[in-house]
Amino acid sequence: MTVIDIRIELKKGVADPEGTNTKKTLESLGFKGIQSVKSVKMFEIELDMPEKEALAAGEEYCKKLLANPVVQSYKVTLK
């Protein structure tokens, strides 16, 4: 079995209200030195195929469903 991680993140310049709000809240709890908080989404997918095919399949999943190319970028890696 092969396990891949798919990391979906917002493209540069796209506002990230979840990240901004989280940063503000952490600071209001007294945590210091936080430079930035970025929200990302992860999918962990188990596949019954060799690693190379699994990575290619992951790319297809992103193109067809998991990422909208207008606002999101993605990275597929082996776990």
């Binding site: 796209v14 506002a15 209200p17 979840e18 901004t20 909208n68 190319p69 207008v70 606002v71």
Partner: peptide, 14 residues
Amino acid sequence: EEPTAALYNNDSGR
């Protein structure tokens, strides 16, 4: 074939 636009989070974040 793929989306060419997105309806993304409101500027207010809520």
